[in-house]
Simulated scan of single mutants.
Amino acid sequence: MTTIHLVNPFASAFGGSERRALDYHALLSTDADVILWAESDPDVALAGYPFRRLDPTGGILPHGGTLVLLGTFAERRHWLTRARPERLIIVYNTPELQRLRSLIEFASEAALPEPELVFPSATHRASAQMAGFVDWGFYDFNLFRSAPRPHGSDAFVVGRLSRDKDYKHHHQDVRLYRQLVARGIHVRLMGATVLSERLGGNPAIELLPAGAVPAPSFLQSLDAFVYRTDPIWREASGRVVVEAMACALPVVAGRSGGYRELIVHGTNGFLFDTHNEAIGYIEGLRADRSLAQRVGHAARATVVSQFGEAHIARVREYFLHPPLSTDGPAFR
C-alpha cells in the first residue's frame, strides 16, 4: 500500500492549508496509508485528528513514500534530505513565490525527487509561471447550500468570513462597510476582530472572531457576500468564495483573486475594481431581490458542477497514481 505523508503546521483550524490537508487525509485513507505530520503543536480545535508531531531533532520524521508539503511558509530544508521521499509534491497556495523557488532549488541541490506542484487555481499557477496540477479543494455541498434566512430584521445583510488577519482585509474595507451602513445595509463579518478599533460600536456592524459560528450557518444568514483582501495578499483561489457560491449567495468580489475564474460577471457574481463599483453592485442586489436570487442560483450551479464527484475522482487519481508525464494540458 502506498504511504502518503501530509505535512503542515496545523496551527489554525480555519486555515486553507490545514483544511486541505485534512480533506486529503479523508479522501485518500481508504486506498493508502496516509499520515498527518504536524510541524507545530496543532490547534486544539483539531485534537480529534491522528497527528504525528514532526521532530527533526528527535529523528521523528516522514520517511519514503509520497511526501506532500502543504504550503511553503514553513522552513523544512533541515530535515527534507533525511526523509528520502520517493515522490515529492508541493502544494503552493500562498503568494510567496520566492519561498517556492528556494524550495525547488534546494530539492535539486539535495538530489531529492523533482517536485511536482499543486496549485489551488489556474490563475495562481499562471502567476508562478510553472507547470503543475490544479486542485480547487473539496466542498460539502450538503452543508454549504441555500437555506431560509433566520427570522429577524428585514434589513439587507452583507458579509464575509476569513481568518482574523489584517492582510485578509483590504485597507478600503472599513470605508466600504461604513458607507453600506449609512445606506441602511447591515454588515456581518466573521474573522474581523482585527477591525474592531475602527468599526466597533456600530450596532449595524457585527464583528465576530474566526470560527465563532459554523461557516454554513454564517453564510446562510447573509443576503450577499463581499470579498477582497489586502493587495499584498492576493488570494490564490478563495475557498470562502466557493463556499459562499455554494450557499447560493450573490458574490461581489475584488477582481484580483483566483476565484475570478469561476465568476461570469453579472451572471453568477460580480467582479469590481473600484470602491464605488462594489457599492453599486450591492445596491443593485438589494433593489432587485429576483436578480440576487438568479445570480445566487447560478453561482451554486457553477461550483457544484465544477467541484463534484468528477473533480474528486481526478484529485484522488493524481495522488494515488503518479502521472506518467506533466506535459499535458492538465498541468499547464
Rank of each mutant, 00 (worst) to 15 (best):
Asp288Glu: 09
Thr267Glu: 07
Gln306Thr: 06
Val251Asn: 09
Cys247Lys: 12
Gly284Val: 00
Leu262Met: 13
Val295Arg: 09
Tyr259Phe: 13
Phe307Thr: 15
Phe307Glu: 15
Val252Cys: 09
Tyr281Ala: 14
Glu261Arg: 10
Gln306Cys: 08
Gly258His: 04
Glu261Ala: 12
Gly269Pro: 10
Val303Thr: 03
Val252Gly: 06
Asn268Leu: 06
Gly284Trp: 00
Ala301Asp: 13
Thr274Lys: 13
Gln293His: 07
Gln306Val: 02
Leu271Pro: 09
Ser256Ile: 03
Ala298Tyr: 11
Ile263Gln: 11
Pro250Glu: 08
Thr267Pro: 00
Asn276Pro: 02
Ala299Pro: 03
Gly269Ala: 11
Leu249Phe: 00
Arg294Met: 07
Gly284Ser: 05
Val252Ile: 14
Ala298Glu: 12
Leu249Trp: 00
Arg260Ser: 15
Leu291Ser: 15
Phe270Ala: 10
Arg300Asn: 05
Gly269Ile: 11
Asp273Phe: 02
Leu285His: 11
Gly257Leu: 05
Cys247Gly: 03
Ala299Tyr: 05
Arg255Asn: 09
Ser305Met: 03
Leu262Arg: 10
Val264Pro: 00
Gly308Gln: 13
Ser305Asp: 09
Ile279Val: 08
Glu277Tyr: 01
Ala292Asn: 06
Glu277Leu: 06
Gly280Met: 10
Ala248Asn: 03
Leu285Thr: 07
Gly308Val: 02
Gly280Pro: 01
Glu283Met: 12
Val303Gln: 12
Arg260Gly: 08
Phe272Val: 15
Asp288Gly: 13
Ala278Ser: 09
Tyr259Leu: 14
Ala292Arg: 08
Gln306Phe: 00
Asn276Gln: 10
Ser256Lys: 12
Gly296Glu: 04
His297Met: 04
Val303His: 08
Leu285Arg: 14
Val264Thr: 13
Ala287Asn: 08
Gln306Leu: 14
Arg300Gly: 01
His297Asn: 07
Arg286Asn: 11
Glu277Arg: 10
His275Asp: 10
Val303Met: 12
Gln306Ser: 14
Ser290Ile: 00
Val304Leu: 06
Ala287Cys: 09
Asp288Trp: 01
Phe307Trp: 14
Glu261Trp: 00
Ala278Gln: 11
Glu283Pro: 02
Ala287Arg: 15
Pro250Thr: 08
Ala278Phe: 02
Ala301Gln: 13
Cys247Phe: 00
Ala248Phe: 01
Leu262Phe: 03
Pro250Arg: 14
Gly254Ala: 11
Asn268Phe: 03
Asn268Gly: 05
Glu261Phe: 01
Gly296Leu: 06
His265Leu: 14
Leu271Tyr: 04
Arg255Ile: 10
Ala248Trp: 01
Tyr281His: 15
Asn268Ser: 07
Val251Pro: 06
Gly266Ser: 08
Ser290Asn: 10
Thr267Lys: 07
Arg300Cys: 04
Glu261Lys: 07
Ile263Val: 11
